[in-house]
Design a protein around this nucleic acid. Structure first.
Lengths: 341, 341
DNA sequence: GGCATCAAGGAATAGGTTTTCCTCACCCTA
DNA sequence: TAGGGTGAGGAAAACCTATTCCTTGATGCC
């Protein structure tokens, strides 16, 4: 393959046709395996294309075919920790099918979002993926765009629009079962702001699973606060005061778990011997950096992204989806819940 | 503005022209403020466009004009912690000029990279930004692509190609001056693998600045290791053994600094009273979550991205850049270096 | 030998926009 | 009144590709 382009102007199919001594139409057929052509002609065209470093102009193709093999991705949280893996998974599902992704960060500004959507529509993307910070429902990006839209890690207030989110309730259950399975019976839960839907779902999943295993913790025992290590430290002190015999804590994020771990150890409790800890996010720099490393629930965000992309592809292909799809979480066991036996 | 599209087919300029009772060419001129048209005609066309929710097909425009107002962004580190802010800054500089960004993650796989570049070229992007994990030089993505390329947070082995990177040497100097300015005189440096160019540059900047302030630390005293909290903990123990009177440590990342801080405090040293700590990255979840919060050097990655994008725009506009551009870092002072007075 | 069939490839069209060049009518001046 | 200038807008080319329809020559069959 000679170096990509002749630097000046990219070769067009017209150049290829001329070089191969055939018409444009014939060249097109040869390159796309269409029509009735002699073997030798195909080869000649292929050789010319190779020689000229020809690559079809996808703009022209898109203009003609009505499909651009391009999708838009809109994120509201500055490519944050959540939307990135989602993007990664989506890119994975799309990229392998030769679809390119336009990325747009709205910074949570509706006006900016509107203008991005306009731009994407003008570029004739085949579909849209909308991803957000957390799982809270948000205003629809538009229901009559003429192209399919899938939400990932967030949902539209118009609840019929397809959305893919992690199974937060399942995350809570997973945590409870893991802790109980490790022989813990006095559970605590320290988590983020109660206004987050995901927070409430996890808490209820956790409490329910505990209850049905005969271990008592009610949602009113849950400690809600900010998403900060600072709150983790503080909450640990509070919890130890109100429930000094606690032997395990489920933390709503790895950051919280770090704070909790730190605080507990300063208060002389050993992790996991005295108190076991489970975090959420499986955010490796946090979870692995902790001492001891944190058991954490991975929300499989890449799967969320992948599934969203697959739903989008199906919709583009004519099979739209509706409503919510949840993706199961996975618990990654590490030293912070190692059996104290 | 009536709801975006008529759901079925997007309105074209032909529809607008028909509705306004003018020819296509006239409609185009009216919408773009070109040509000689009566005021009333322009208004009529504008009204029709609004009514039909017309937005020009950017594919067609790109096909015709040779410019797509689109750039490709290639990252090698899975949208990691470094390339994201860079992307953000770039998107900032580009987005406000109505340029859309194709995002591609190569996962460090040259074959994948090649195929992405092909795809972007086929989509006739106007330029390329290549961003990487750290600042190490990498093989060129191609020097005869026919479109300008700018590297950000990484450089091409072909050193003439334009690249924008943070001023790592300056980061080291900043750290040294800050610590010395806070009255510290026995400096240590714990950092990442010596094979990283950025690591060596920071170390030499740090040692030089210290030397020229009359404080002795040689590059041979630097502790090199992995980029992990674990290494931070271990290195702190080593350092305290070999230099028990150290009163300040410059850490090559916030993660390292977290490990160091943790380890020091377990060994009974107070931060910052006994030992002051400076990290690098200003990675907020890490730096703010630490106790005490970490002073850290912000590499202003968004500025790196912004500048790269600006260079790219200039190159697209006909004024290509060459060689290295460095972006200054900024020290964010927090409690870990609060004067012990 | 005439006709249908078939292989091979050319010509033309569509897709949506911008831009250049034309046309047409009108007014002004010599 | 002829010629030129001008204001307003139309027609058509150009961008590049894929596809549909045609043409051409050759072959096979009755």
């Amino acid at each position: 393959m000679p170096d990509q382009a002749e630097s000046a102007r990219r070769a067009t199919i017209r150049d290829v046709a001329a070089q191969a001594g055939v018409s444009i139409g014939t060249a097109s057929k040869a390159l796309n395996g269409q029509g009735k052509l002699r073997r030798e002609t195909r080869d000649r065209v292929a050789a010319a294309a190779r020689e000229l470093g020809f690559a079809p102009n996808l703009l022209a193709r898109g203009l003609l075919g009505g499909r651009t093999y391009t999708v838009g991705m809109i994120t509201t949280d500055s490519f944050g920790r959540f939307s990135i893996p989602v993007m990664l998974g989506a890119e994975d599902a799309l990229g392998s099918g030769q679809i390119s992704v336009f990325m747009c960060d709205t910074r949570d500004d509706p006006a900016r979002e509107r203008s991005y959507v306009e731009g994407l529509l003008s570029r004739r993307v085949d579909g849209l993926i909308v991803t957000g910070r957390r799982v809270e429902p948000r205003p629809s990006v538009g229901t009559r765009l003429g192209i399919p839209v899938v939400y990932a890690m967030t949902q539209s207030l118009d609840s019929d629009e397809p959305a893919v989110i992690p199974d937060d309730r399942g995350a809570g259950q997973l945590a409870a079962l893991h802790l109980i399975g490790a022989g813990r019976h006095r559970l605590g839960h320290i988590t983020g702001p109660e206004r987050f839907l995901a927070v409430r779902k996890r808490a209820s999943g956790f409490c329910e699973a505990a209850a049905s295993a005969g271990v008592g913790i009610s949602t009113s025992d849950v400690l809600y606060g900010e998403w900060s290590e600072q709150w983790g430290r503080e909450a640990a002190r509070i919890l130890l005061r109100t429930a000094p015999d606690v032997d395990s804590i489920f933390c709503g994020s790895d950051q919280l778990a770090r704070g909790v771990s730190d605080s507990l150890q300063r208060m002389g409790r050993r992790v996991p011997d005295d108190i076991a800890l489970v975090g959420v996010d499986n955010w490796e720099p946090m979870a692995l950096g902790a001492d001891p490393p944190l058991t954490s629930i991975d929300m499989c965000l890449e799967d969320v992204g992948r599934q969203a992309a697959e739903l989008l592809l199906a919709a583009i292909g004519g099979t739209p989806a509706h409503g919510l799809t949840t993706v199961p979480c996975r618990l990654i066991a590490r030293a912070s819940t190692r059996s104290s036996a």
